[in-house]
Design a protein around this nucleic acid. Sequence first.
DNA 1: ATCCTACGATGGACAGAGTCCAAGTCAACC
DNA 2: GGTTGACTTGGACTCTGTCCATCGTAGGAT
Lengths: 136, 136
Amino acid sequence: MSDLLERLRGRGWRMTSQRRVVAEVLAGDHVHLTADEVHALAAQRLPEISRATVYNALGELVLLGEVIEVSTDGRAKRYDPNAHHPHQHLVCSHCGTIRDVHPTGSPLADLPAEERFGFTVTQIEVTYRGLCPSCA
Amino acid sequence: MSDLLERLRGRGWRMTSQRRVVAEVLAGDHVHLTADEVHALAAQRLPEISRATVYNALGELVLLGEVIEVSTDGRAKRYDPNAHHPHQHLVCSHCGTIRDVHPTGSPLADLPAEERFGFTVTQIEVTYRGLCPSCA
DNA sequence: ATCCTACGATGGACAGAGTCCAAGTCAACC
DNA sequence: GGTTGACTTGGACTCTGTCCATCGTAGGAT
Ligand SMILES: [Mn+2]
Ligand SMILES: [Mn+2]
Ligand SMILES: [Zn+2]
Ligand SMILES: [Zn+2]
């Protein structure tokens, strides 16, 4: 993770204690925290950190491509630091639990050119939905 | 669309003027309205219809499998009456415009069994994201 | 080491989408 | 036509996220 902090510093990110804590809280694999969860964890280390600051930091990390925003259907967005290992998500329709998955058949079925309607497609997102073992 | 109304009546749906108007407003192909858009259109015909009723009716149509809920990333959910012709969506990341698309092959790249984590996968949703011609 | 200042943090108000509820209304069956 | 439980209403409420005026501070300049 400190390589992340290095990379950010290198890009001119002013290193504040708040941003450091947010980046540290997000460290790890299979992490999919909501903004408020990040805020709660960050506040354990830095009690006066504000929600706005957490939202700002997360937004910047997303813009910098260091974190992926996963939006799950009506609930709060989740933030995924595993931005450098492409993967997709399996989501429980009942409780919202997320798991990382790596579908086979790599080049996710491209769109027929005549169905692109002039769009520049930059991202293909596959979401597998179902019930997790405890909700089934 | 009156076949829809028939089907609903057959399933014990009490037919109120509000529900009828909501179902009628949703009729058509490539329709992806938000709940508030449905409400506005419905209110043109039935001025006193309430937002809560529209949300209730939409929720029931979704449960009955007659309408698909398309959630688009931070914006309001959209309601798609084209539930009986499986398709996927192409969404503009900038303005939120939606187009129906029909990817070739089996985009539904199945999940390796060992990556299902005990989930019962019931739905695979593919979202193509990019910029529409006017946002590019 | 100290000073400066532009960038970042704060917290409280605000907004959008959706849910909930108590009270009133009416569709459908008798 | 009367009965009744399902449906509707509208307003309050919740949740997620944004905005903004003000205050604080990281880090370059001296
Ligand atoms: Mn992930
Ligand atoms: Mn559609
Ligand atoms: Zn679950
Ligand atoms: Zn667009």
